[in-house]
Design a binder for these strands. Structure first.
Lengths: 352, 352
DNA sequence: TTTGAAATTGTAACCGATTGCATTATATTT
DNA sequence: AAATATAATGCAATCGGTTACAATTTCAAA
């Protein structure tokens, strides 16, 4: 640790023959400071390479200008996009991001939540882990009135904003499209049905079946972890089924792509023998052959909205407003992001 | 902002009829504190829901327990993996991450660097932007002796550790493999040759050509931004060439995949008409048909090594050691991560 | 010139944790 | 029991920026 000591406002004050208070005010455009003095201050601050100490400031102000993020997975194109969207908005506003990663584990999620609370983030943006059901770990934020925005994976919780898509509608459109293409036995690959996103899509799937006069067969709803290995196993299973399904709606493009690939390797034709619809509109859906019909789930947009919503709550006058009712009204919104079906070759059934 | 005031060591001290100093020591297992007193302290701290104020601590200790990260892109599987690796190691050690994102822009990179310096991160992990050449924005870190670990995209810089792969060797292996398969006209798709990674791979490409008795044709080295659009353009260009190249080494799997796909759509057979090798071993390389031969570049491993190296420097006794020479010796290492060619169908040429 | 309001600047007390240097309580030795 | 060593705790300054309130200066109105 070489390096001279940092310059502080006391150093500036000494050099300028002013008080630290005046320097402090001068650096932040306090109206009471004479414009000429202010200029002297900012000039010498620049010359001497002054940088303010955010700890001292945070300590005094009880604000951190930092936003905590908890994601369930980092190695995901969707999450990367969301992060990118968040980053774009928060950086403009001068906020920093601290990222926590739950790896789909409730335990790690709680530990992240505690850590971020301890770090006194000004706000939190979170997507829940696979197996999260209780929300107790967010109570400290609630008690302190620290705003939270949940996205994608959410729970019913009487606090915070939710940024989501209409999963029921998305599931409905995907399934209805397959049905409209003539599919009669449509398998649904999904994950933990306790999670809102999967529950919603399943509901849409069922509604679409009903609307198209197809009976719902619980055996065709297959739950797994949507991993590469699971996709390969799933493909094998489908190949061995009799009668074989003629349509598949998977809640994840990566899974759908591996699944599709494995079927092809085993001689099945897509979409002729089996039509496939994925979810997310990841890059892979445009590269796999045939190109994958999917639901567009714009991650960057989700991130931007989540960040904007959080910043709104941080900078709105609510802090001053006493009315908990009003604050509560503001913080219980749900923001629905538009999602839509993108039809590509993998589902264009021509069997009739 | 509802919520009672936070509990401080002063509150604990009052309740326990002790001094704040004793409480502070008790909370951190200071040996001078009686074990029974310590227990009383930690117990009531738990009961009263005490959480230490990291700003006060940071202010006093001049340490943040925070690591800054600058990446050139967030929406990349490779970078996600690296982040995941970093996160794994640093979380174990109780460090937080602040993530900055340069979007391949030198300007944003400098602004991120300044911001992270200002936030007083204890250390920095960075991968340079596309167009970064000068390293002045890292000078403040150098002057203060804040350790830096660069990964992937690095520059010659007499400070900091580098975690990289042997790009020359990787480029060589990729190209030599194509040559060994009988390719005679091998195109190399790459990006800004000012960046070490691309320069190194090109060098390996040239060496392999030489070793296999092929003449180097600068016209076959094509530089672009490796985007989806560029891949499609590239494919069109290849299709129009006469004589047509019979091998392609692209420095990015995503680009290679889109390129491959576009060629197929235009009737070219891979690998019969043209053999292709990508780079990174992204998931997409295993899904595209034919599967892509590629260089395995283990991002998670890179992230873990980078984080470990940084933590070493943060916790080593170097802080106490005066010898700048010794510190400098330690901080100029380069860590080479093993990378290797993974041969798949896209390059198995059988044309003699 | 006197006077009071307005414009500037200064004083000093925070924010909460840390730690060198006492000081006090306890244990050990003679 | 006195003297000394040792263990345990307290005092008070410090980190750097912020801000209520006080003090001073400036300037125009009286």
């Amino acid at each position: 640790m070489t390096g001279k000591k940092d310059i502080t406002i006391y150093d500036l004050a000494r050099v300028l023959s002013l008080s630290p208070a005046t320097v402090s005010r001068g650096l932040k455009d306090h109206p009471a400071i004479n414009i000429k003095t202010r200029k002297r201050i900012t000039d010498t601050a620049r010359e001497m390479g002054y940088r303010s100490n955010s700890f001292a400031s945070n300590l005094r102000m009880q604000k951190t200008h930092t936003i905590g993020i908890i994601v369930h997975e980092l190695k995901s194109q969707f999450i990367s996009s969301v992060l990118s969207g968040i980053e774009k908005i928060t950086t403009e506003a001068g906020y920093d991001l601290i990222i926590g990663h739950s790896s789909e584990s409730y335990r790690k999620e709680t530990s992240n939540a505690h850590n971020l609370f301890h770090k006194r983030v000004d706000g939190l943006i979170a997507s829940l882990a696979f197996d999260t059901t209780d929300m107790e770990h967010f109570d400290p934020f609630v008690k302190k009135g620290i705003p939270i925005v949940f996205f994608d994976r959410v729970e019913d919780f009487p606090y915070g904003t939710r940024v989501i898509i209409d999963n029921v509608k998305a599931g409905y459109e995907a399934t209805a499209h397959l049905a409209a293409q003539g599919c009669r036995r449509i398998v649904h690959f999904t994950a933990n049905l306790g999670r809102n996103v999967y529950a919603g899509r399943l509901k849409g799937y069922q509604q679409a079946l009903a609307d198209y006069g197809l009976t719902f067969d619980p055996a065709l709803v297959m739950v797994n972890d949507l991993s590469e290995a699971a996709a390969i196993r799933a493909a094998r299973q489908i190949l061995s089924m009799n009668p074989r399904p003629d349509g598949v709606f998977a809640t994840n493009d990566f899974f759908a792509a591996v699944f599709l690939q494995t079927l092809k390797e085993n001689g099945l034709r897509v979409p002729e023998d089996i039509a496939i619809v994925g979810f997310n509109n990841d890059a892979i859906s445009r590269i796999i052959q045939p190109k994958l019909t999917t639901i567009n789930y714009p991650g960057e947009e989700v991130g931007e909205q989540a960040a904007r919503s959080l910043l709104d709550q941080l900078t709105s006058p609510s802090a001053a407003v006493a009315s908990a009712k009003e604050a509560s009204a503001r913080t219980t919104d749900t923001i629905i992001i538009r999602s839509e079906l993108i039809i590509r070759d993998s589902s264009l059934h021509r069997k009739v």
